[in-house]
Structures are given as C-alpha cells and as structure tokens.
C-alpha cells in the first residue's frame, strides 16, 4: 500500500516569508504565496500536487513555529 501522503499546514499569519522551509524542502512541496498576510509577507504555502513525506525538515528550519505536518 503506497505510503499515505503527509500534509503540510502553514499558519500563514505567523509566517514572515523567510523561505527557509521552501529552500530546504526536498520535495518542493512548499512555495511562496501570491497574496500577502496581514503583516505584508508572502507566506509559505504547500502545493497539494507535490508529495510530502513527513520528513519535517520544514518544521526544523522554521523560526516561527508556523508549520504543522500531519501524517500517519
């Protein structure tokens, strides 16, 4: 059975667009949003097509504890 895909959720109002998660995500799941959050940052946003393996590198490098990873 294929490993069920994990899911990344970004608390967009807490993200400051530092893009570290985008740089370090091996699967290119995260990208920069078009819209701005209230603070005026392009926040990180997951691309549902891409397959997240739940490795949590994004969580590791995020300075704002703004990323939640869901999986089995």
């Amino acid at each position: 059975m294929a490993k069920t895909k994990c899911r990344v959720v970004v608390r967009s109002e807490y993200c400051k667009g530092c893009n570290l998660c985008i740089v370090y995500c091996k699967k290119g799941v995260l990208g920069s949003s078009e819209e701005l959050n209230k603070a005026g940052y392009h926040y990180a946003t997951p691309d549902s097509e891409k397959e997240c393996t739940g490795c949590k590198l994004c969580v590791l490098v995020c300075p704002e504890v703004a990323i939640e990873v869901y999986g089995e």
Binding site: C6, K56, E68, V69, G71
Partner: peptide, 9 residues
C-alpha cells in the same frame, strides 16, 4: 491524519 510535530508546551 495526526499532527506529527506537537506544539512545544
């Protein structure tokens, strides 16, 4: 699906 990274208390 459950949260894999628990919020630090």
């Amino acid at each position: 699906m459950k949260l894999l990274n628990k919020w630090p208390v």
